[in-house]
């Protein structure tokens, strides 16, 4: 079953400001998309081995490895299979050369002359084309790669928002090497997939000023380059144990220490003036943060894209937490 809100999309690109948890969201999305009979590939391209850490497996090689079973469906059916791929530019270059140019021995010579290092670390723009090229190949499998698995969905844990347009190869001002020569053809077919209805770029944010601002800027930039904007995933949302009425009361100064102390007394938490003061300070602090969050939530709503919310996981993100996020994304329709 494909994404409910994005049924046509096959390639889900997940970006976000550093520290907002985009890798976690990408992993949760992959688990959520892998319902019964659905094959999903989760890719990472930044050499961090974040997937291996999240799923608690050995560091991933440049090969598609089965890492998890997707979230079971509501009907109790078994989840589909999630594979993972760690794309590194060196391997992608050598694979590309052997697939398209039949270079054979010359490929090895290239390595010996430092050409591989040059192409993957220094030659402007080439690195990104190699990384996106592999993701393209996995999304649009063709006859050149025999016996490969065909995926129903590919989720890409992409570079951060600030670099996303450049990464997706559409930033014409930064005319890199990839904008000239034969490698350009490769880049062009990749770009046409990215611009098609089969792709959606999702942005992860938290309810703070800078990440929300960066999300707004990112959306504007994606739109300016005709890249399909998917949804905004608001991550790490604080618990909302105080209702709107309570928040108003706190802000209006209607919460008194005496009242707090009386309530605490009733349940046997007696005598701690420090606790009363602590809870009182916390209440004021929480009310202020919630007001700031609401203001940012309003800005996110004004972005005119579907939004999804995920809670802050108190215990940190472990495998169980990823399934929890997957379930929430499925409930809300992103997966």
């Amino acid at each position: 079953m494909p994404s409910r809100d994005f049924p046509q999309v096959r390639l889900h690109i997940v970006t976000g400001k550093g520290g907002t948890g985009k890798s976690t969201v990408a992993a949760g999305l992959a688990l959520g998309l892998a319902s019964t009979g659905t094959h999903v590939l989760l890719c990472e391209v930044e050499g961090r081995q974040g997937i291996a850490r999240m799923f608690d497996v050995e560091p991933l090689p440049y090969a598609e490895r089965r890492i998890a079973t997707g979230l079971p469906g509501a009907d109790g059916g078994r989840g589909g299979i999630v594979h993972a791929l760690h794309v590194d530019p060196e391997s992608a270059l050598l694979e590309y050369l052997s697939m398209y140019y039949k270079l054979g021995r010359a490929g090895k010579a290239l390595d010996r002359f430092g050409v591989v290092e040059f192409a993957t670390t220094i030659a402007p723009g080439v690195r990104d084309v190699l990384l996106t090229g592999k993701v393209y190949e996995a999304t649009k499998r063709n006859a050149r790669n025999k016996h490969a698995i065909t995926y129903d969905a590919v989720v890409l844990d992409a570079p951060p928002t600030g670099r996303i347009a450049q990464f997706l190869g559409v930033n014409q001002e930064l005319a890199g090497l990839a904008r000239m020569g034969p490698i350009k053809n490769q880049a062009d077919s990749v770009t046409s997939l990215f611009r098609s209805g089969r792709t959606a770029v999702h942005l992860v944010t938290v309810l703070e000023e800078m990440p929300v601002q960066e999300t707004a800027d990112g959306i504007a930039q994606l739109r300016a380059h005709d890249l399909p904007v998917g949804g905004v995933i608001v991550n790490q949302v604080r618990p909302r144990d105080l209702g709107e009425k309570d928040l108003v009361a706190v802000r209006a100064g209607k919460l008194t220490k005496r009242k707090l102390a009386a309530d605490l007394n009733r349940v046997g938490l007696t005598g701690s003036a420090e606790l009363v003061l602590g809870l009182f300070t916390e209440a004021c602090d929480h009310a202020e943060r919630r007001a700031l969050e609401d203001a940012q939530r309003g800005l996110v709503a004004g972005l005119d894209v579907p939004t999804y919310e995920l809670p802050r996981l108190v215990g940190g993100v472990d495998l169980g937490g990823l399934y929890e996020l997957a379930g929430l994304l499925r409930e809300q329709g992103l997966a």
Binding site: L103, L110, L177
Partner: peptide
């Protein structure tokens, strides 16, 4: 190996 490498580079990057 040099000629081979230059050829390969021309193929991938283009002569320009």
């Amino acid at each position: 190996g040099l000629g081979m490498v230059t050829n390969a580079l021309t193929k991938v990057l283009g002569a320009q």
